[in-house]
Design a protein around this nucleic acid. Structure first.
Lengths: 147, 147
DNA sequence: ATACTTGCAAATGATTTGCCAGTGT
DNA sequence: ACACTGGCAAATCATTTGCAAGTAT
């Protein structure tokens, strides 16, 4: 259901790259951290902590702790797609912003520049600096609109 | 609970009006329902179920059940402002859409037409029909942006 | 060696649900 | 009278936290 944008340029090309970043941040490479990182590299959409935990046989709380650590050091971030658990992903060279269909759950990821017109309009009218990285634009997708 | 697109649009000036709407929906006017309705009329912004419950001495679960009932019948709706509990409000005359500051929690309610330009832009570019009633536009408010 | 991490269990916050006594119509 | 509703307790879901045992450096 999640559609990635065309230009998918990650700043961490591979696991070794991410591991180096971890090390530079003074963090240890524990087994579960490596497993979670590997899984994130192997996954191409936002994943829940639960999905990671069960898929890897790592304790859920450890996964949350890992993700939080990675997030604190800029390797990972998460998005809240409607109700349900947060979805985590590697931080790439560019962030993505999201559009979410409340009806069917379809998630569309877009590159931030594509939303600049929208963002500018909002800034102009209300002075708010909008970001759709942590909380998406919520609405109805084309398919659901046509029922 | 997601607001159904075919939910009836109700408009009521005061408690009696709302009570009439309740009755017409075939619902009973129990003590806790009356108390919750009264509290909603006397409250200006979106309130959490917890705030209602403690302020009224009504069981939290009953408040949730009341709110859900009201929502099912189009008297009430709720918005998710960042993390934290859902915030409930009367549907009353017209809907509002929200802008939320992730930094300070500031919430700005706007009349839907004010967001039509933004909405149109999003529809044009992505085909999504955006609504900021259930989930707000999230970002940084003017005050926080100027630090 | 020792500081950091995990597994496990229990706590937390938000919300839901089962059950039975009580109340609105 | 009867179905509907509230109080209360327990369950659920997502996430966090405390602690003792295990592991990376």
């Amino acid at each position: 259901m999640t559609v990635a944008p065309d230009a998918k340029r990650l700043s961490f090309e591979d696991l070794d790259d991410a591991v180096r970043a971890l090390r530079e941040a003074g963090l240890r490479l524990s087994t579960s951290r490596r497993l979670v990182l590997e899984a994130l590299f192997r996954t191409d959409g936002p994943v829940s902590a639960e999905q990671l935990a069960t898929g890897l046989g790592v304790e859920l709380s450890a996964v949350y702790r890992n993700l939080e650590t990675f997030e604190r050091h800029g390797l990972v971030r998460h998005v809240h797609l409607g109700h349900g658990p947060g979805r985590y992903m590697l931080v790439g060279g560019g962030e993505h912003e999201y559009l979410y269909c409340e009806r069917c759950g379809a998630t569309r990821a877009v590159d931030p520049p594509q939303l600049d017109a929208v963002r500018d309009r909002i800034a102009e009218q209300f002075g708010y600096q909008a970001r759709f990285t942590h909380f998406p634009i919520v609405g109805t997708c084309p398919a659901c609109r046509d029922n």
